[in-house]
Amino acid sequence: MKNEINDKVEKTLAAFDNMERAEVKPFFYTRLQGRLQSDDKSMAIQRKFVWATVVVILILNSLFYAFYEPAEDINTDDVIVQMYDEYNIEQIDLLEDVGE
């Protein structure tokens, strides 16, 4: 039994001995040429797309800077004064009671 299995294993390991080389289907080069050409086309389209995207981003950027109006500066001192007036807040002197 063991010998039989060993025999099968050895025969299987030798199954690739004297095998012929697998061959491609006819017109392999023609198909390869077609692929090279279609790859060239798609690469050209890809390149155009990348350039177009870059140009659009640059245009959007320049439009943004051309029409950008910064918001008016808010004076924080004015806001504080407004809040004092609105809520009737008086200045609190923390040391006021200490002296008395």
Partner: peptide
């Protein structure tokens, strides 16, 4: 089945390929 393998070795070659 590998196209270069002789007919009588096809089954064994398949087993070997799987291994």
């Amino acid at each position: 089945y590998h196209p270069g393998v002789a007919l009588e070795n096809k089954e064994r070659a398949k087993v070997l390929h799987d291994a």
